[in-house]
Simulated scan of single mutants.
Amino acid sequence: MTSFLSGMNLDLCGAGVGLKIFEEYINGEEKKMEEALGGIFKDTPMFALTEEDLNIQYRSKLGEGAFCTVYPCHIRSRATNTFNESLPPFALKRLRRDLEGMELNEAYEDLRQEAAIMRGIKHNNLVPLIGMSEQKDDIPKNKLFIVVEKLESTLDKKLEKWHKILGPMKKMTPKDTVKLRLEEVVLGIAEGLGFMHSKRVMYRDLKPGNVGFTYSGTVKIFDFGLAVRLSEGTKLQGKAGTVRYMAPEISRNKPYDLSADVFSFAVLLWQIITSRTPFEKEIPKLDFGPPKVIPEGKRPNLKYVENQDIGQLLEVCWAENPSQRWNFDNITMELRRIVEQMESSPTKKKKSSRGIKLSTFKIN
């Protein structure tokens, strides 16, 4: 079997620039974390790691799925041969040790695919791949793991707080708060997804639980387990994602493409600016019955969206016809225009001044 790491510029024991930046991250001050993380990938795409390189905190499990478990970990500094636990930890995602047979083979290929996707999408609003276990014929498949940046908090936790702040009367979200969330949360998500789409990578599972924030507050998308690369003109078929945010063509088991991510983004945008749960009646949070579906044509209520331009953006992004949804370049451009408009007239609700048809921009 050819190593997944073959052909990569790995300088694990020399004094290469990539390793130097990596060591600065491991030993450096917390304020240099963001800069160092970006520098890791400039010269060295990824680092081959063994379990001896890691101090894994097995008692502090971060999460668990059907095939993988996630733990916090620190990486040994090759300069001092120690673990600097004064820095925030990374996140280790590894295959469950009890997997075997076909299930193990499937999980192994899925995690390798996730790592391959992450290698090709390095962006400030996407969680970076730090390293991956060595893959050799004499290493059991169930020892496969990847190491990624660990985030400080997640969007779903913030949304819970925002919902409580809204109160039992469910007031409208203040306009200044909407503007702040557009700037600090929504734009970063749109730019991260836009970069993925520019590389023909579809995310397929956008939801609050897959969006988080670094210790310095940067919003980042994480968990690329369902991400897939699409060649030009191709479509996928088969259900994938979370029903509450799922595009109608996916829920109906019809062919879909990158535009399905745009639909999910629109539902999440509505949730972020209204502090409400989309389709709360249709899909109760604590419902353990049969899987639910969103009624055909149903969308979150725009009466909770005061800004008309945001309302129009939502309508075009969650359009029933996928070909009418905008691409993320145009979504980002429009979001920036809306923010600028809100800055110039923070107390007024302006009508749209675009003077363009909603179908002008199409998905790439």
Rank of each mutant, 00 (worst) to 15 (best):
N210V: 08
L226A: 15
M246W: 06
I273N: 02
I221C: 06
R204I: 12
E249P: 03
G241H: 10
K199Q: 15
I272E: 01
E232Q: 09
R276Q: 10
G209L: 08
G217L: 11
D257L: 03
S275E: 01
G233K: 12
S264H: 12
V228A: 14
S198K: 14
P208R: 11
T277L: 13
A247M: 06
G233S: 11
A266G: 09
T234Q: 13
S259L: 09
T242S: 15
G209R: 04
M202W: 07
T242N: 12
S275M: 06
K199W: 11
G241I: 06
P248V: 06
D261L: 10
M246L: 14
S231Y: 09
H197A: 07
G241Q: 03
I221R: 02
I272W: 00
R229D: 01
T218R: 11
D205R: 13
K254W: 10
K254I: 10
K239M: 15
R204E: 12
I273Q: 01
S231Q: 12
I273A: 01
K254V: 12
A240S: 15
V267F: 02
V219C: 08
I250Q: 04
L258I: 06
S259T: 11
I273V: 13
T234W: 10
D223L: 07
L206C: 13
G238H: 14
E280H: 07
D261K: 08
V219R: 00
H197Y: 05
K207R: 12
R244I: 05
F279L: 03
A240K: 11
K281W: 08
K239H: 13
K199L: 10
F224A: 06
I250L: 13
V267S: 02
N253C: 15
S216M: 06
E280M: 12
G225I: 02
D223Q: 07
N210R: 13
V243H: 05
S216D: 10
V211S: 06
K235V: 09
F213Y: 14
L206Q: 11
G217C: 08
T218V: 14
L206R: 12
Q271D: 03
N210L: 09
E232Y: 08
S264C: 10
G225D: 00
S264E: 03
K239T: 14
R204P: 05
G217N: 08
I221Q: 01
G217P: 02
T242L: 09
T242Y: 04
